[in-house]
Amino acid sequence: MKSKLKGYKEIPIGGLILDAGNAKTYKTGGWRSKRPILDKSNCINCYFCWFYCPDNSVDVKDKDVKGFKLDYCKGCGICAVVCPKKCIKMEDEDKFEE
């Protein structure tokens, strides 16, 4: 079977990575054992969840907190702790598995 990994003539020299920010194609959501659930009815768009998230996994569009980028969220739960309105709950990931 041919490897999907590239050969030495196909990669930049010196270990350089030329594709800035390409870690985004690596999904860390699978690490999660707890999933953040947002109760939007209480959310005041203070953006603390977005600001404190170590994984840039809070989805904000047009200055409005929409929810979480589950492809990346590792489920640490910092967002739930820093939320002043306590409108983020961490729930077991198992519950969401099909």
Partner: peptide
Amino acid sequence: HTLLDFENPITVGPLDLYDYYFEHKRQQVD
């Protein structure tokens, strides 16, 4: 490629494990 090219930001000196370290050494041989 340089670190002062902000149009094309590069990463120099990453963690290079068994997937590619050998390939980078092979390039050095050439």
